[in-house]
């Protein structure tokens, strides 16, 4: 892209400080990332609390959507974890809505997508990973280690199975965080690069513009799907911690 020097597809991921805050040795400035996290919280709250203000017996459109998201996550948790997962419902629901709104808001041109930062997705993944591990040990004690060696397998297979299970377990936070991060980054870079083509091609820019429209639609799907995948994987990890395989 020799002629597209002014178009930097990575520029959109830059974190810029809006309000510098220093806490001891740490820089906790209010950045664009923090702004969009707050916006996500605000919109989720407006969506769910505002729409249910009337507590209508026959729901309107907004209340209906709020109820659908509630039932969707509730069913997801029940199907994957069972009734024992009931107490984790607020966390799982918050996680889903937070990521979903972060992803979708990020698709609005000119905004910032906080889920496209590995530090954010990894922080969420590692908190889930640690919480799940703690829940597992709290429920089963040392028996939680059975997770690394399935029932009924011949004893000699332990040599192979235990390292494999251990590696797959320890790689969970990495795969969980990289999946969301990579999907968001790739989508946004793709949109930006193709948008650069629209400008470069001048009159013939309508061709990549058509492609851009299609990819934008696809990105909305990806935004919802990745929020869903992140949530369902959290549910599966919870299932493992509670029921051991």
């Amino acid at each position: 892209m020799a002629s597209g020097g002014s178009i930097d597809p990575m520029h959109q991921f830059e974190v810029t400080t809006l309000l510098p805050i220093q806490l001891g040795n740490y820089d906790i400035s209010f950045t664009n990332s923090a702004l969009f996290m707050s916006l996500s919280v605000l919109l989720v709250t407006i969506f769910l609390v505002g729409s249910t203000r009337g507590r209508a017996l026959v729901p309107g459109r907004w209340q209906s959507m709020a109820e659908m998201s509630y039932e969707m996550v509730a069913n997801l948790l029940r199907d994957n974890v069972g009734s024992a997962g009931r107490q984790y419902f607020p966390f799982v629901f918050t996680l889903f809505m937070f990521i979903l709104f972060g992803n979708v808001i990020g698709l609005v041109p000119g905004t910032f997508t906080f889920t496209s930062h590995i530090v954010v997705t990894f922080a969420m993944a590692i908190i889930i990973f640690l919480a799940v591990t703690v829940i597992g040990f709290a429920r089963h004690g040392a028996g939680f280690l059975r997770l690394f060696f399935p029932h009924g397998a011949p004893l000699w297979t332990a040599v192979i199975l235990i390292p494999i299970e251990l590696v797959s377990y320890l790689s969970r936070p990495i795969s969980l965080s990289v999946r969301l991060f990579a999907n968001m980054v790739v989508g946004h870079v793709l949109l930006k690069v193709i948008a650069g083509f629209v400008i470069m091609l001048g009159v013939f820019g309508f061709i990549p513009l058509g492609v851009l429209v299609g990819i934008t639609a696809l990105e909305f799907l990806v935004a919802a799907l990745q929020a869903y995948v992140f949530t369902i994987l959290t549910c599966i990890y919870l299932h493992d911690a509670i029921h051991l395989h």
Partner: peptide, 21 residues
């Protein structure tokens, strides 16, 4: 910016968790 991002993630997520729960 990592510390700041994690800090605001925890703050905003915590607020949202409280509002949801």
């Amino acid at each position: 910016t990592f510390v700041g991002q994690i800090f605001w993630l925890i703050v905003t997520f915590g607020v949202l968790y409280f509002l949801m729960a």
